[in-house]
Amino acid sequence: MIFHLALHGVLEGALGIGLDIVDTAAGLAGDTGGRLQQRVVSLDGGPVRSGGGRSLTVDIASPLGSLAFGPGDVLVIPGPSASSESRVDDLLARPETMRAVESIRRAADSGATVAASCSATFVLAATGLLAGRAATTTWWLAPLFARRFPDVVVHADHMVVDSGEILTAGAAFAHADLLLALVARLGSGELAEQVARYLVLDARMSQSRYMVLEHLRATDPVLRAVEQHVNANLTRQLTLDELAAAAAVSPRTLARRLRDRLGLSPTEYVHRLRVGHAATLLATTREPVDAIANAVGYADPAAFRRIYRRHTGEAPTATRTRASDQRVGRGPTIEARSMTRICGQ
């Protein structure tokens, strides 16, 4: 049985896509009474108010703490609306969150698999179940996650991280990827692929190409200065000392600022900026990939392709093809449409 825990402020889109994916999988597999059964639950068994202010009913009118979990069960937690550090702080300070932490821990202790996405990963981490494990979370809150839970290995660029009986996913619509991973586990990889095709869900292994750095650096003059210097010197290699001098700080201060604000090293930040320029050129010009690599500072085209894939989750040619498809009227994929509402933004 799959239990979807709706906390107050839950994002309706995340909860809804999760339900649709499991319903579709059950229908395609002919699973009317097996592992793909699902129910929506709440902490007290009553309705919850969504992030959009609507009242959502649940399927089981019993408190979460009274439900029996066991091996084969899955407790899935879509993220409540919490798009900033202050709102995450508020979420973790709620009395109901403390109750959720105890119930989640009890479900895991009973052998259930636990999965969470977006801001719900903070609630999951508060249980201690992620200690010593790898996890992901919504990309712009990853530095906060790393500071709050230093015993968790954070992979902010991953859509889904599978750590055995604990799974985590990134921003709100990564909840779709999380549920597809669970369908693959409970059914089969083939069934998950069939569901993805049926619902027109693209394969997305990485959050990297969704990381809008402006969201995090807009108020930081040091990061703006580094960005401007990189943009003015795209075709040549830059040292840490040079970047620090451009921002009028010490190399150590620059490294610390980047780590705290973006969760990136100076080298990774420069790669991210270069890759962002490359993605724009791929989408808007017909220049060969090797020429674009050179234009953004990579003399070795093979190295550029490796770095580009690491930071975007796809090959340069895939970016160009996707942009071309959208220009000729095939329309944005679900991932593009999803960008309009991520974790309450």
Rank of each mutant, 00 (worst) to 15 (best):
L129C: 02
S265N: 08
G189E: 09
T24H: 02
T138Q: 13
P251M: 01
G276M: 06
R306H: 11
V296S: 00
L216V: 13
H158E: 11
E96W: 14
A192V: 02
D23P: 08
R204I: 14
S86D: 13
Y298M: 00
A6N: 13
D202W: 08
L5Y: 09
L91H: 03
A318Y: 06
L240W: 04
A302Y: 09
L243F: 02
T239H: 09
T113W: 10
S83M: 11
M1K: 12
A318D: 07
L182T: 03
F149T: 05
E96Q: 14
H8A: 13
R286V: 07
H271D: 15
V289G: 00
T57D: 13
Y198M: 13
R147V: 00
S84T: 15
V289H: 00
R341H: 14
G164A: 02
V222E: 03
L264N: 01
A278G: 06
A244D: 04
L201S: 02
R147H: 02
G53D: 11
E96S: 15
L36R: 00
V183K: 00
G13N: 10
I21W: 04
A203W: 12
G344M: 05
V123T: 04
A107L: 09
G79Y: 03
A291F: 03
H311N: 08
S84C: 05
H155W: 03
H271V: 08
A255Q: 09
A125L: 04
L129G: 02
G30V: 06
R236A: 09
G18K: 01
R286D: 13
L130S: 00
G164R: 06
S324W: 12
V212G: 13
N231V: 14
R105Q: 14
M339T: 15
S119M: 03
E96M: 10
Y308C: 03
V41W: 01
Q207M: 13
L91D: 01
T280V: 14
A278T: 00
S66F: 04
E287K: 09
I292T: 00
P266D: 05
M98G: 15
G331C: 08
A93H: 10
L273T: 14
S50G: 07
S66Y: 05
L201K: 00
R197M: 13
L64Q: 03
P288T: 01
R94K: 14
E190Y: 06
L144N: 05
L64T: 04
G45S: 05
S110H: 09
A255I: 04
L75Q: 02
E85Q: 13
E335R: 14
A134T: 15
A244V: 06
Q345S: 14
A142N: 04
